[in-house]
């Protein structure tokens, strides 16, 4: 029940910090959309909304650190719709499994992303003395 359209953290972060931040900012937007599916599956549907709010703040912080934040692509509304439609077609059991998978994939994405950014920032600090 892995959602193939959700991004993994590392592939886009092999090169420089800018590329890494770009990947994370775009990835976060995709996960923000995916959390909409969690609202129907969650016992407390205010949590997915809070997650989206914090993701928005994080994307702003990331963009502030970027040289070219305008290059971060925003998902179109039809792309958003497609992502949610793919999930909506599933039966109830698969929807639940997909929700679990989104949570797992999102957690891994965040942990990997912050670890990678930490490596880049520490390396830069070291270079700058």
């Amino acid at each position: 029940h892995q959602v193939s359209s959700l991004p993994a953290a590392l592939p886009g972060c092999k090169s420089n910090k800018e590329a890494c931040l770009h990947w994370v900012a775009e990835g976060l937007q995709t996960y923000m959309v995916a959390t909409k599916h969690l609202e129907s599956q969650s016992a407390d549907n205010s949590l997915p909304a809070n997650i989206r709010y914090l993701c928005g703040l994080l994307i702003s912080q990331i963009k502030q650190q970027m040289k070219k934040p305008e290059k971060v692509r925003v998902l179109t509304s039809s792309e958003e719709e497609q992502l949610l439609k793919d999930i909506d077609r599933l039966d109830a059991f698969s929807k639940r499994m997909t929700a679990l998978s989104i949570l797992d994939q999102f957690r891994a994405f965040l942990s990997d992303s912050v670890r990678k950014i930490r490596q880049k920032e520490k390396a830069k600090q070291k270079r700058n003395g």
């Binding site: 599956q41 969650s42 016992a43 949590l47 997650i51 994080l58 679990l100 949570l103 965040l110 992303s113």
Partner: peptide, 21 residues
């Protein structure tokens, strides 16, 4: 530093606290 932002941990906490029906 961006990696020191508390938002990363806050989002992970919410993910961990999210209980599915």
């Amino acid at each position: 530093l961006l990696c020191d932002s508390s938002i990363w941990g806050a989002i992970i906490s919410l993910i961990d606290g999210l209980k599915l029906q």
